[in-house]
Design a binder for these strands. Structure first.
Length: 1018
RNA sequence: GGACGAUUAGCUCAGCUGGUUAGAGCACUUCGUUUACACCGAAGGGGUCGUAGGUUCGAAUCCUACAUCGUCCACCA
């Protein structure tokens, strides 16, 4: 079977073809793995299963190094367990990534001059889905490029039909259990995204801010300090520390003040959280626009006055500040305070600005009507524990009869507990369109469309041309007759009532204000006209004054007809269960936080059809074979940066919904940074694109560079050089195989070796292989990928290529072919999970018909049966002697081409060394004549080497000076060893307390070194 | 403010429960066309393991401070 192979391995010529072959074989699907010669039939059905859910990349994303690490590690695990004969399933999928995707599409639309509000929900979602589909194909192809052996037949998407069913079912369960509630709470609001954000979606940016110290009014007794004077328009209290002597006397008192023209009622309250050192030690409480203040207001039953609207502008009713954005309002207020001589101080302080993690826009805390998950409510059906308690227990001690979830590295468990302890109710509603629309329907009253109006004429273009105008039209809590979102420059008034739940313009039309036929549905026309006159005294209303009508969707619409029932269900209700009518049903327009659906990922992906997902006895049941076979998953592997975002939420959702853990182990990899340790980012231009690396150096090299030289949970710095280094390794493995394949007839049908025909080198490599198999198994079972990889590399390059193969060139024995075949086959298997392509390519060249991918993992028992004892010493000695001779020659500057004579005094090892004579001569020692004796006289004018009890003389090449130097250095080294050993052995306590093994080791070391030293000094 | 991580050769990093003369890869120096591989081979130089204490017969490894860098969490009125 001797054959020709190309000299260098070119990954690009093999990889795509190999992946296609794998895919075509269908064997990524564990149900399809047939019995093979390596994986004998019968074991198939009862095999242990092994499952990993792939953290779904965003549909609109492209592959980056983070994905590459994730894919490399998970593929290693999957391939390893598959080869061990387990039913290994790796479920791939993608995430719709609500806000991220919507933002991306909106950006694209804006380039074309389009806007989602103009398109309307339906058309916009069509656009998003189109974009998502295209993007999906890109990311999937990139995942394949990485060699990922995931089962594409089970691919899932967080927004597909089955997953939607899971989301709605869990939502309903939680609602029925009273865990999901709707309420007006202060939330993190992004005025750009126009949506709420979860607590952990808020990021902070260091900045300088001005801290203003002032009095509300002349008659207020003391000063307060704030960086946000504009919010003070909504102050309803002033908080001081109860211990603060300065303010004790005021606590409990109430003041009415005129703050820059706005009347405020302020109660002085005490709160321990107030820092006496900060500012004046007194803090104005703005319940509507600060998280802390909101809680103070709850405790002290304070009024809540909203100042800022959802566009980040001052609301109606705060003239002259109304309609101004927060920055302008701040300036105006500060100027007014200055003018009134109320401003005492203006100083610069360090401040952290909260910003949106998606778009960096400053966050406004706002009270808003939203859906929440109660994390504290005890659930009867779950042992009267809250979801928070269940999630803590799952990691602390295990729940539902499962072992505790292990987080690797364990130090992250601490982070997890800390996060869980501080978890507040989770706001799950988002005011965006792309995502799982909340499965809640209102009958009439609760939600209906209502018309809003703006004046037309010269302002038409303004209203329609800028996004901000449209955004301004939205607001909360509008009552009948209210004039909302009033803005002077836009010159428009809007009329309506209720809470807007949707911001799309459903209908736009122009009517004439005085023309009565347009006012059939509005009896408040006169009121509207009056309002308009108030705001625009200069405008005359005549028969030609036209008004734009915006039709918006509202809640609590008095003008609507329905019965007001709220319905939470899995499917859209056909009729209202309360009034039996269908025409007034409207679905809540909010969508769910994307992590709600990803929280269900490990089990929702194991359902194939929506009707397999059911509620049974207050528990979610997935009635599928896959769920029975593959859940809980074995390991969840991902970057530590989404421990809270995702992992914690999966634990929350899974323990609650199905009364089980989502996974047994969590393996957290570090983040990939550039070679200087900086975070990779497009703006810094320091990204290394995994696809570039794959193109240039191959997938195998890219994978190795991400796996070797890194430890779990620690960031790694990646440079192109590193990848190139592993490209070299892949080529090395190729050439090792090439050499063996082209020089030997490899037979693999019979693995029985005749031990009588083995050389010492054969035993030596078999023993090392034996150790390798055992250790790599332990490493992989304990997620020590780097260590396993290094061991494999060392064996392949050092032991096999540099020693055994070199020796084999001079040892043409009967069993050589067989041993080489065994070693190479097993080595390819051990390497396969790490570098699947090159190993599969070589495997084919070896003449295998079956895929390496499904071959059986090497069996250590085969190797442990071999009689190594007394058989490896010969080659072991050879390696030492050869190294010593090469070293001595190099130090003496003996030309490599120069052949010399060597004499070895081997003592009692004479026979052993004699058996190695050919190898000692051949392994690049440049020895043409070798004499081996048991002992003899010292030889002058020769290079003298001592290796333990063996003395070697190299004759006819000595360079006196250099040799002296070399001997001197040798002596120094030995003296160092002797000194340290003597110190230890001279210490009575060491001899008494250290384990015998350690003491003996020291003794032997000393004896050997002293012996060598004695000989050198002679 | 709290927590966590890092600090080991010029660079990137290993070093698992304390016992090696402290390792690897890259880079560097010298040499080399040898039945696979120059994406190669042989040999070599290079580290008082951040600092200071402590525990121990013995510390890169455990403990305590400190320093520097980094990350996360909370707060910043």
């Amino acid at each position: 079977m001797k054959k020709e192979l190309p000299k260098a391995y070119e990954p690009s010529k093999y990889e795509d073809g190999i992946y296609k072959k794998w895919e075509k074989s269908g064997l990524f699907n564990p149900d399809k793995i047939p019995p093979t010669p390596f994986n004998k039939g019968g074991v198939l059905d009862k095999r242990k299963s092994y499952t990993i859910s792939m953290p779904p990349p965003n549909v609109t994303g492209t592959l980056h190094m983070g994905h590459a690490v994730m894919l490399a590690i998970e593929d290693i695990l999957t391939r390893y367990h598959r080869m061990k004969g387990e039913r290994a399933l790796w479920v791939p999928g993608t995430d719709h990534a609500a806000i991220a995707t919507q933002t991306k599409v909106e950006k694209e639309l804006r380039k074309e001059g389009k806007d989602r509000h103009k398109l309307g929900r339906e058309k916009f979602l069509k656009e998003v889905n189109k974009f998502a589909q295209e993007s999906h194909d890109t990311i999937v192809n990139q995942i394949k490029k990485m060699g990922s052996s995931c089962d594409w037949s089970r691919e899932a998407y967080t927004l597909d039909e089955v997953r939607t069913r899971a989301v709605r079912t869990v939502f309903k369960m939680m609602y029925d259990d009273g865990l999901i509630y709707r309420g007006e709470r202060i939330v993190n609001w992004c005025p750009r995204c126009h949506s709420t954000l979860a607590d952990d979606e808020v990021e902070y940016k260091e900045q300088k801010a001005k801290l203003y110290t002032f009095k509300y009014s002349k008659d207020f007794p003391f000063t307060i300090a704030t960086t946000r004077p504009e919010t003070k328009l909504g102050d309803t209290a002033v908080a001081v520390n109860p211990k603060d002597e300065r303010y004790k006397k005021y606590i409990g008192k109430e003041y009415e003040v005129d703050f820059v023209g706005i009347k405020l009622k302020l109660k002085i309250i005490a709160d321990r959280e107030v820092d006496m050192e900060f500012g004046t030690g007194a803090l104005g409480v703005t319940p509507a626009h600060s998280m802390i203040d909101w809680h103070m207001a709850e405790e002290n039953k304070l009024d809540i006055i909203k100042v800022i609207d959802e566009d980040g502008n001052i609301r109606e009713g705060f003239d002259p500040f109304s309609g101004e954005d927060v920055f302008r309002a701040r300036k105006m207020i500060v100027n007014k305070l200055k003018k009134d001589k109320l401003l005492e101080k203006e100083e610069e302080v360090d401040n952290k600005l909260s910003i949106c993690y998606r778009c960096d826009t400053p966050i406004e805390p706002l009270p808003s009507l939203q859906w929440f998950i109660d994390v504290h409510k005890k659930i009867k059906r779950r042992g009267n524990k809250s979801i928070k308690e269940l999630s803590v227990d799952a990691v602390k001690k295990g729940v539902f009869g499962r072992d505790k979830i292990n987080i690797i590295p364990t130090r992250f468990e601490k982070n997890y507990f800390h996060w869980m302890d501080n978890l507040r109710d989770w706001c799950i509603s988002r005011q965006i369109w792309f995502g799982h629309q909340i499965p809640v329907w209102y009958c009439g009253k609760q939600a209906q469309t209502i018309k809003k109006m703006g004046f037309a004429g010269d302002i038409v273009t303004q209203v329609f041309d800028t996004k901000t105008r449209t955004y301004r039209l939205r607001d909360h809590g509008i009552k009948v007759g209210d004039i909302v979102a009033f803005e002077d420059s836009a010159k428009k008034i809007i009329f309506g009532q209720g809470t807007i739940t949707e911001v799309s313009v459903i209908n736009v039309g122009q009517i004439n204000l005085k023309d009565k036929k347009h006012w059939k549905t509005y009896e408040k026309r006169e009121e509207l006209i009056a309002a308009f006159k108030r705001h625009h005294p200069e405008k005359k209303i005549n028969n030609n004054t036209k008004v734009w009508i915006y039709t918006y969707k509202f809640d609590n619409n008095l003008l609507s007809k329905g019965c007001g029932t709220t319905i939470v269900d899995i499917e859209a209700p056909k009729v209202c269960p309360s009034c039996g009518k269908k025409e007034n049903l409207i679905q809540d327009s909010d969508t769910l936080d994307t992590w709600f659906s990803s929280g269900l990922w490990t089990f929702s992906t194991l359902a194939q059809k929506p009707d397999q997902i059911k509620i049974k006895d207050g528990k979610l049941v997935i009635d599928s074979e896959d769920f029975k076979n593959f859940h809980p998953t074995n390991v969840l592997e991902t970057g530590y940066d989404i421990l809270f975002f995702w992992i914690a939420r999966m634990i929350i959702m899974t323990t609650y919904a199905i009364e089980d853990i989502p996974f047994q182990d969590v393996y957290l990899h570090g983040l990939v940074k550039d070679e200087k340790g900086k975070k990779m980012s497009k703006s810094l231009g320091n990204t290394i694109d995994p696809l570039d690396m794959i193109k240039k150096y191959g997938t195998d090299a890219t994978r190795l560079s991400l796996v070797i030289g890194s430890t779990p949970g620690n960031d790694m710095n990646l440079s192109e050089d590193k990848v190139a280094g592993y490209r070299n390794f892949a080529n090395k493995l190729w050439n090792i195989s090439r050499y063996i394949i082209t020089n030997y007839e490899l037979t693999i049908t019979n693995k029985e070796i005749n031990q009588n025909n083995l050389t010492s080198a054969d035993y030596w490599i078999l023993l090392r292989m034996c150790r390798l198999i055992i250790l790599v198994k332990v490493d992989l079972d304990n997620y020590r990928f780097s260590q396993a990889g290094e061991r494999l590399r060392e064996f392949t390059w050092d032991d096999l290529a540099d020693w055994y193969l070199e020796a084999s060139k001079f040892e043409q024995t009967k069993e050589k072919e067989k041993i080489l075949a065994i070693i190479l086959n097993d080595l390819l298997k051990l390497w396969h999970p790490f570098i699947p392509f090159v190993t599969e390519a070589i495997w084919k060249e070896l003449g295998h018909k079956d895929l390496l991918m499904i071959s059986r993992w090497p069996d250590e028992n085969y190797y442990t049966k071999i009689q190594y004892e007394n058989n490896v010493a010969g080659f072991n000695a050879t390696t030492f002697i050869v190294k010593a001779i090469r070293d001595a020659r190099a130090q003496n500057k003996v030309e490599p081409a120069k052949k010399i004579k060597a004499v070895i005094y081997a003592g009692k090892n004479k026979e052993l060394i004699e058996s190695q004579a050919e190898l000692i001569k051949s392994l690049r020692t440049g020895i043409n004549e070798l004499e081996i004796k048991d002992e003899g006289p010292k030889i002058k004018d020769a290079i003298y080497i001592t290796v333990g009890e063996i003395d070697i003389y190299l004759i006819g090449a000595v360079d006196e000076e250099k040799e002296k130097e070399r001997i001197k250095k040798e002596i120094e080294n030995l003296e160092k060893v002797i000194k340290s050993a003597k110190m230890k052995l001279g210490n009575k306590e060491f001899v008494a307390k250290a384990p015998e093994k350690v003491v003996n080791m020291e003794k032997n070391k000393l004896k050997k070194a002293e012996n060598e030293l004695k000989k050198l000094k002679k």
